[in-house]
Design a protein around this nucleic acid. Structure first.
Length: 418
RNA sequence: GGAGGGGUGGGUGAGCGGCUAAUACCACCAGACUGUAAAUCUGGCGCCCGGAAGGGCUUCGUAGGUUCGAAUCCUACCCCCUCCA
C-alpha cells in the first residue's frame, strides 16, 4: 500500500529517468501525493507474444511504480489484435484462433513477469467488455470523434497524403484502446512516444464519459542493435528478454558504442551518478569502451537470467570471440560416420589424420545451406580447421579437430556418436 | 456504376521479346580492419555438376497460348490499390 505521501526525490526519479513526457505532469504529481494506489494501464497485443528490451523501458517504469504500491492492469488485446496497430505497416494480419491467443498470452506473460511484479498485476481480457458490445455502443463511441482529429495524427496524415490505404478499422483502433481505459478506470497509461496519440484519445474519452482522466507517460524509443531504427522484431534488430544468456550478451556487445549510454540509462538500474561518471570517462577516453560495454552486457543478462549466467556468458564471449576458441557446446560431428562414407579408405597424412571432404560435410551437418554456399565460403577463406584456413576441399581431420565456418559456426569432430 | 494503376528473388523496386538468374538500394553472408564493436573497404548473395573455363535445371500472381526465343506479347482467372460518382 502506498499509504504515505511520496518523498520528492523518489518522485523525481520516477518522473525523469527514462521518461520522455508526462501529460499532465502537475496532475500526476497530485495523484502521487494522494498516497492511494493508482491503476496503471498496460495493453498487450496477443499477435506479438515476444518482449524485447525496447518494451522493457516501459515495463521497468511500471515495476518502479509497483514498488511504490501501485497496481498494474494488464489488458490482453484480443480484439485490437485483430485490427493491428496502425503505427506499423499496413500488413494484413491473419485472425488468430482463440487457442493461439491463449498460447501467446501465456508466453507473453512469462516474459512480462520477468520485469513486472505478478503480485501487483491484474489481468483483464478485452473480450470481457467488447464481447458484449453492440452496434449502439460502437456508434456512441465513434460519434465522439471526427475524421479530421484522427487525420491529424502523423502516420495517418502521411499515408493519406501518399494515397495509401487506411482501413476504417484502423481508425477504430485508437478508439478501442481508449475504451479500455474506461473499462478498467485507468489512472495512468504508458507507451512509447509513438503511442502518444492513442494515449491521449483514452484521456479525452474518459473526460467525455465523466471519468477521472488518466495521465499519460511516454517513454523514449530504444534504438535497435542496428543502431538506427526502433527496436522491433520485424526489423530483426532486437534483443529478446527470453533469449539465452550467450546470445543476449553477444548482441549487447555488438551494439555501437554511441548507443551504450542510452542502454545503460533506459534498461539498467545503474545509478545516475555512476552513469555521468561513465559518460565523462568515455568522453576523455580514459576508459576502453569495451569494458563498459561488458558491464552493460552483464547487467542485462543478470536482469533476465541471473548473475551466474551473466558471468558464464561473459567467459563464453571472451573465449569464443576474443580468443576464437570453440564453444563448449559446439556441434559434434562423427568422424567415423564420414570416414565410412568414402568408398576408398580415407588417406592419412603423416600425422594420422583422415583427409575428408569438408564441403559435403559442412552441408550435411548443417553448417552451410547448400553446396554452392559451401564452395563460396571455402573460396572466401571462411573455413578453418584447427585454426588453419582451408583452401581445398580435402581437410585433415581427427577426433577433437575443430571446424570453424565463418565467425560463429563451430563444430568439433568426435570419434563416434550414436 | 465509371476511369485508371499494380502483383518481379527476404524487403523496397527497375526491367517490358533475345545482351536478364534478372539493374539498384536495404537486409543478409564472408574477408580486411577491430574491442565479434560501430563505421568503412572488398567480395558474395536461386539450385546442381565442374579445379576452372563452362554447363545443366528451376524462378518474375495462377493457368493456358503466340514465338526459334517471354518477366516482357495475347487470353482467361485470382488478388491488391487509387481516383470520380
Amino acid at each position: 500500500m502506498a499509504s504515505s505521501a511520496i518523498d520528492p526525490q523518489t518522485l523525481q526519479s520516477v518522473m525523469r529517468r527514462g521518461v520522455s513526457e508526462i501529460i499532465v505532469e502537475e496532475e500526476f504529481v497530485r495523484l502521487m501525493q494522494l498516497g492511494e494506489p493508482l491503476r496503471l494501464k498496460m495493453g498487450f497485443d496477443p499477435s506479438r507474444p515476444d518482449i524485447h528490451l525496447g518494451h522493457t523501458v516501459g515495463l521497468r517504469k511500471l515495476r518502479q511504480l509497483q514498488n511504490l504500491g501501485h497496481q498494474v492492469i494488464l489488458i490482453v488485446g484480443d480484439w485490437t489484435a485483430q485490427i493491428g496497430d496502425p503505427s506499423g505497416q499496413s500488413a494484413t494480419r491473419p485472425m488468430l484462433t482463440a487457442e493461439e491467443v491463449r498460447d501467446n498470452a501465456e508466453s507473453y506473460m512469462r516474459q512480462f513477469f520477468k520485469v513486472v511484479d505478478r503480485e501487483r498485476t491484474q489481468i483483464e481480457w478485452q473480450s470481457e467488455w467488447f464481447g458484449k458490445f453492440t452496434l449502439a455502443n460502437v456508434l456512441d463511441l465513434t460519434k465522439r470523434f471526427t475524421v479530421a482529429q484522427f487525420l491529424a495524427r502523423d502516420d495517418f496524415a502521411q499515408r493519406f497524403r501518399a494515397q495509401r490505404p487506411i482501413a476504417i478499422t484502423e481508425l477504430l483502433y485508437p478508439l478501442l484502446q481508449a475504451y479500455d481505459s474506461i473499462a478498467i478506470q485507468s489512472d495512468v497509461e504508458f507507451g512509447g512516444t509513438d503511442q502518444k496519440f492513442n494515449l491521449l484519445v483514452g484521456r479525452d474519452l474518459q473526460g467525455m464519459m465523466g471519468q477521472r482522466q488518466q495521465q499519460c507517460f511516454t517513454m523514449p524509443i530504444l534504438v535497435g542493435t542496428d543502431g538506427e531504427q526502433k527496436m522491433s522484431k520485424s526489423l530483426d534488430n532486437y534483443i529478446g528478454v527470453d533469449e539465452p544468456p550467450n546470445d543476449m550478451y553477444g548482441k549487447v556487445m555488438s551494439i555501437s558504442d554511441s548507443l551504450m549510454m542510452d542502454y545503460f540509462y533506459l534498461v539498467t538500474d545503474v545509478p545516475d551518478a555512476e552513469l555521468s561518471e561513465m559518460s565523462r570517462a568515455l568522453e576523455s577516453e580514459s576508459v576502453n569502451p569495451m569494458d563498459l560495454k561488458k558491464r552493460l552486457a552483464r547487467e542485462i543478462v543478470a536482469q533476465f537470467h541471473d548473475d551466474r549466467a551473466a558471468t558464464q556468458a561473459e567467459s563464453h564471449f571472451v573465449g569464443t570471440f576474443q580468443r576464437g576458441d570453440a564453444p563448449e557446446d559446439a556441434q559434434a560431428i562423427s568422424l567415423s560416420k564420414w570416414a565410412a562414407m568414402l568408398e576408398s579408405p580415407p588417406e592419412a597424412d603423416g600425422s594420422g589424420a583422415l583427409m575428408l571432404p569438408i564441403l559435403s560435410m559442412i552441408v550435411g551437418e548443417g553448417l552451410a545451406q547448400s553446396s554452392s554456399e559451401a564452395k563460396r565460403l571455402l573460396a572466401q577463406g571462411a573455413i578453418q580447421v584447427d585454426g588453419e584456413r582451408l583452401t581445398a576441399d580435402l581437410a585433415p581431420l581427427r577426433a577433437g579437430s575443430v571446424i570453424r565456418v565463418g565467425r560463429r559456426r563451430f563444430a568439433r569432430m568426435v570419434d563416434r556418436e550414436d
